[in-house]
Design a protein around this nucleic acid. Structure first.
Length: 503
RNA sequence: GCCCCCAUCGUCUAGAGGACUAGGAUGUCAGCCUUUCAAGCUGAAGACAGGGGUUCGAAUCCCCUUGGGGGCGCCA
């Protein structure tokens, strides 16, 4: 058995949770649960300029919807709190001071304007872009002078000038960078807030995180973090840089607040958009876990417990993946079909209520709807797909459109009038109004009169719903009841006849 | 431009030197079923990016090329 791991998901509240972030969180959660360790939620709100007020709330909502839970976090507390970085500022400031005192970092007095100017010059001379370390070599006297001027300063990491750093990544193996390629990154900003680099390292160490699981966009700053761990004399955590999820087009990774178009259709990339479209959280979980990881060589549908049992970081595929949107729809359909009719009924209520403008309580009691649930269950991929399959129940008069739409293929309008008459006669006389009896009766009618079943069914479908595509007829007849069904059939017949009598 | 990561059917993936005639899924197409549409079942087409090595043997190891992704901020 592997050692219990402490993993964390550390989103920045500069926006909402997107698919890629959710999948990374899911992997970190899976690994914590797999090892019977802990999963921690930490909020990295060190960028005051880009802070989005309700982002934390939305992110938490999204993670919970997905079915993730955390042992420690801003909302649940824990022994290593606080779990919000803006509440831990002293820790970072102390850490930065310590680094400066011990020669691992230095104060830099350059202003943003000076830095911009420096970069512009580097660009003009086609030199490598990056901080030229001018403040690293300042003499004590020069420093004293800068401070006397009252200039503000940032703390920068003094990276080794030569040699290389190597770290081990569970899903990529050894990764090596030349120190000469590294920047003297800012650790503490002029406003006293830490940058990501300082804050993650300090917090991951403080919170006893054993596995740093994050998106692959962090690979290039990992060497900086390794140097920080070394400077502090701390033990390195295990790194796992998760592959990014690309747009369905394959061009670029999925980014915040962007809707992507594969071939005309738009696909939401923010997690919070999915519940409202009628995707089930258990389907979403299953689906997301299957991007960059697979249970085995043939299992597609599995629950959380099974995933936990099989999951391992080292099995993550390092290659970036496109977002396979079509597969999500298929999988969501699978999960919808797995629901009991009662459960599906419950989950459908908010969507139908919204689309039909009918209070949920009213719909919940509607027996007609219940009759139709099993029939629509295998016909929808998302919860929002149900509305057009039941909306005809809730209209006073069906919109028949062109009266000739009542006429089936290979049938004349006159013949259709005859068929409708026969249907109405038959249904008025039918002994019991249940699916079996109705089917028997109508099939018998077709047989004795020499009509194809479709010639009888098509006009009924059209008369009752005004649609060409609907769930099966008999549940609809039962749902509407004898009286309403006949009323709609008679009205359809009248309209067709009237149409035929016109010159 | 420089650095890093990556490379199996259209797409998501299995594959850790011989078990590969490269497996599963999705999507597509066809057939069956059938009252429409679905669902279901059957079947088909469909991939190791290219080139060099290493080895008795390579999808699997190494190198190069190409292609994709990421990074190069007082953003995370």
């Amino acid at each position: 058995m592997t050692q219990p791991a402490r993993t964390r998901f550390a989103p920045s509240p500069t926006g909402y949770l997107h698919i890629g972030g959710a999948r990374t969180a899911l992997f970190a959660w899976l690994y914590a649960r797999h090892t019977h360790g802990q999963f921690i939620l930490r909020i990295e709100d060190t960028d005051r300029k880009r802070y989005v007020p309700d982002a934390v709330e939305k992110i938490i909502e999204g993670l919970r919807w997905l079915g993730l839970d955390w042992d420690e976090g801003p909302d649940v507390g824990g022994p290593y709190g606080p779990y919000i970085q803006s509440q831990r500022l002293e820790k970072y400031q102390q850490a930065a001071d310590w680094l400066v005192e011990h020669g691992h970092a230095y104060r830099c007095y350059c202003t943003p304007d000076e830095l911009a100017e420096m970069r512009a010059q580097q660009q003009a001379r086609k030199e490598k872009i990056g901080y030229d370390r001018r403040c690293r070599w300042l003499s004590p006297q020069e420093r004293a002078a800068k401070e006397a001027e009252g200039r503000s300063w940032v703390v920068r990491l003094a990276v080794p000038l030569e040699g290389q750093v190597t770290f081990h990544d569970v899903i990529r193996g050894q990764v090596t960078f030349q120190n000469a390629e590294l920047q003297d990154a800012v650790l503490l900003k002029a406003d006293g807030f830490p940058t990501y680099h300082l804050a993650v390292v300090v917090d991951d160490h403080d919170m006893a995180i054993t596995h740093v699981i994050r998106g692959e966009e962090w690979i290039s700053s990992a060497p900086l973090h390794v140097h920080l761990y070394h400077a502090f004399g701390w033990e390195l955590p295990v790194f796992a840089h998760t592959p990014s999820i690309l747009k369905p087009s394959g061009k670029g990774k999925i980014s915040k607040r962007e809707l992507t178009t594969p071939d005309g259709t738009t696909i939401p990339v923010m997690l919070h958009q999915y519940p409202g479209l009628g995707y089930l959280p258990e389907a979403m979980f299953n689906f997301l876990s299957g991007i960059g990881w697979s249970l085995d060589d043939h299992t597609e549908i599995y629950d959380k417990e099974t995933a936990i049992k099989h999951f391992d970081l080292k099995d993550i595929n390092p290659a970036p993946a496109r977002f396979p949107a079509e597969k999500l729809d298929w999988m969501n359909g699978v999960y919808i079909r797995k629901l009991s009719p009662e459960a599906l009924h419950q989950r459908l209520l908010p969507f139908l209520s919204r689309d039909l403008g009918i209070p949920q309580e009213e719909l919940a009691k509607d027996e007609r709807l219940k009759v139709l649930i099993p029939a629509i269950q295998e016909r929808i991929k998302r919860l929002i797909d149900a509305t057009p399959l039941v909306d005809y129940l809730y209209v006073d008069e069906v919109d028949l459109g062109d009266p000739l739409s009542l006429v089936p293929r290979k049938t004349t309008p006159q013949e259709t009038v005859t068929i409708l008459h026969a249907i109405i006669d038959e249904l008025q006389a039918v002994a019991a109004w249940d699916e079996a009896t109705l089917e028997q009766t109508l099939r018998a009618l077709a047989r004795t009169r020499g009509w194809k079943a479709g010639q009888v069914f098509a006009p009924i479908r059209q008369a009752l719903t005004g649609k060409k595509v609907t769930p099966p007829l008999f549940p609809i007849l039962v749902a509407l009841g004898r009286e309403e069904s006949l009323r709609r059939l008679q009205r359809a017949l009248r309209i067709l006849q009237a149409h035929l009598e016109q010159p």
